[in-house]
Write a protein that binds this DNA or RNA. Sequence first.
RNA 1: GGAGGAAUACCCAAGUCUGGCUGAAGGGAUCGGUCUUGAAAACCGACAGGGCGUGUGAGCGUCGCGGGGGUUCGAAUCCCUCUUCCUCCGCCA
Length: 424
Amino acid sequence: MLDIKMIRENTAEVIKKLNTRGDDFSYLYDVVKKDEKRREIIQKIDQLKAKRNEISKKVGKYKREGKDVSDILASIEDQKTKITTLQETLEGLDTFIQQQLLRTPNIPHKAIPIGKDEDENIELKKVGNLPHFNFEPKAHWDLAKTLDILDFERAAKIAASRFVIYKGLGARLERALINFMIDLHVEKHGYEELLLPYIVNGASMTASGQFPKFKDDAFALQDKRDLYLNPTAEVPAINLFRDEILKAEDLPKHYAAFTTAFRQESGSAGRDTRGIIRLHQFNKVELIKFVKPEDSYEALEAMLADSEAVLKALNLPYRVIELCSGDIGFTMAKTYDIEVYLPSYETYREIGSISNAEDYQARRGNMRFKRDTDSKAEYIHTLNGSGLAVGRTVVAIMENYQLEDGSIVVPEVLRPYMKTDIIN
RNA sequence: GGAGGAAUACCCAAGUCUGGCUGAAGGGAUCGGUCUUGAAAACCGACAGGGCGUGUGAGCGUCGCGGGGGUUCGAAUCCCUCUUCCUCCGCCA
């Protein structure tokens, strides 16, 4: 959430910056106008309340002294309705302003490329060598069929389309990757491991930025407690310190969390219908950082390096993309995407995304820290990134490590976890 | 699922029956000081935090006793509702 005071003072500039996302944010002029009205009403209400408090005190005093209070009571007869009416107006304004702020995205960082969509993203670097096959490489779903390690038909029978069953060494590969990634981030990169709830409430979805705008993409539970299936570990993890004030020495906090993520993919009907690129349920290792404002961009670069380390260790070719203003996520000021090379697509596909939300999520979730016991609480900065999407890593390994006979070489670092060097 | 109990400032805890002098006693912790070669102890002093509004500022106003709502001139205190935690019973990986 953006700071209303900041919007108030720099309305035109804020709108101009937000517009680089490709939408029209001029409705903020109206929000500022409503905010002005709101402050006027608060002043009136506070004055009336001050008077009321004064009188009530007097009533108490008089009663104790046994004096008559009926005159005083008569004199404030209409105060109550005045306050009530003003308060109703205020509530309406508050709700309106809050709604508008909640659906307003973060301001893109000033240094990111301006562009309208993904075509204007910038490729920062390519790492690793593309595989050379002296045969026609197969897509992962074809490889999986021969190896009998993925079952889409029965998953659809049990659940629905866009679900999968991993079998045998396929299941083990997924599990091996989860363990490898977590171990790497915990042992080598200094993150603390978390196992989080797979169900989150509406307040958590709002704080992290999923709600209200992306409500359709969540699986809502039929439960009166306003619960949803976790769409990404970012949601439960970012909410760890919601409505808390941390001490300066508590920061930074670095967490690595494995979760299963659930998404409706309602806007992607018909896309990536084959294979395990896009499912309703998938596994992901997520990196989350809570840092002091002045440290967040350094932390972003470090997190990118930590994500890249996974691909480097697996020896998979990838590239890093800097997203342009029109393509960055709703809550984010700056985002890098990591894309892995997939032979069957003959192109790079997203396998991870590393972003700095600055204080946007902290403001939504009221997450702050104090530099000293008597200094003012400041909003922390939050970052999150993939470390990586596990299913898509399975795809990348299958396709890049395939042999002519359809068997798959297990990457060196996974062999201790896989207890085999080949899947066949 | 059933029956009870609880939630007060960093922590513990009084106040709630009987609404007003409680914008919240007391203790601990913490911070500052006295004493001491130094430390401990003892003693003295400080100690809601935060949101909102307003003001150049010191400040002032408002909200605030788990969250939300209500009654009242006035609510920590009365009423409704939600949440969380605890105890016992039942069921259960």
